[in-house]
């Protein structure tokens, strides 16, 4: 008997032996169960990957908004590749200068065509790394965005590695989950000013 036929017969014997206690049940066919499981995993993965995921960030760069450790947030992947992202939104993106698959969470301060300052205001005399390009003003190139952390003194962002391609954006933060009982929708703090609003000095 050819080796392939022997292998096939061993496999079919194993299949019937394994299935024997469950004859006639849906679980009685291990191959079908395996295929069904694989299909379900693919379906679940795609559903999560293209809708909403909950992830957490570590680091001091977004400090007033997110704690250094332990804050979870809901990421909407409808906004991947910068779809419908506006200035003021917090986005999750692949850090362009890293070789591993590391993720950054920062606030968008400029969309294509906007003018941004490449330095940190009021810190031109300090020797921080984010201050290498001093008071330069630049127009964000097409297809890119300018991301800056809320805690500008402890953040590595576009001030260091320049504008981030929109294609690297994985999603937008739509809500924070500080604890299982504390769910808050995230709102864009940059709002259109109505004519009724008065500026108080």
């Amino acid at each position: 008997m050819a080796p392939f036929h022997r292998l096939a017969s061993i496999f079919s014997t194993l299949r019937t032996r394994l299935a024997a206690p469950y004859k006639g049940e849906w679980i009685g066919d291990p191959l079908r169960v395996a295929i069904f499981t694989a299909k379900f995993i693919c379906f679940a993965h795609l559903t999560v990957e293209y809708s909403y995921t909950v992830s957490h960030g570590v680091g001091p760069s977004m400090l007033p908004t997110f704690e250094v450790i332990g804050d979870c947030f809901v990421v909407s992947h409808r906004h991947r590749f910068g779809r419908d992202v506006m200035v003021g939104d917090i986005v999750v993106y692949n850090i362009p200068v890293n070789n591993n698959n590391s993720i950054g969470v920062k606030r968008v301060l400029g969309m294509p065509g906007d003018y941004v300052l490449t330095g940190t205001p009021h810190s031109y005399h300090s020797e921080s790394a984010a201050n290498t390009r001093k008071d330069l003003m630049l127009q964000v190139p097409p297809g890119h965005c300018w991301v800056v952390g809320d805690n500008i003194t402890a953040s590595r962002d576009s001030r260091i590695y320049g504008p981030v391609p929109l294609a690297l954006i994985r999603g937008k933060v739509v809500a924070t989950v500080k604890s299982p009982f504390d769910f808050q929708w995230m709102e864009n703090s940059f709002k259109k000013v109505d004519d009724d609003d008065t500026i108080e000095r």
Binding site: F81, P142, G143, L166, A167
Partner: peptide, 8 residues
């Protein structure tokens, strides 16, 4: 690769 100029 996705174009850096136009992510679509």
């Amino acid at each position: 690769f996705r174009s850096p100029e136009n992510p679509k």
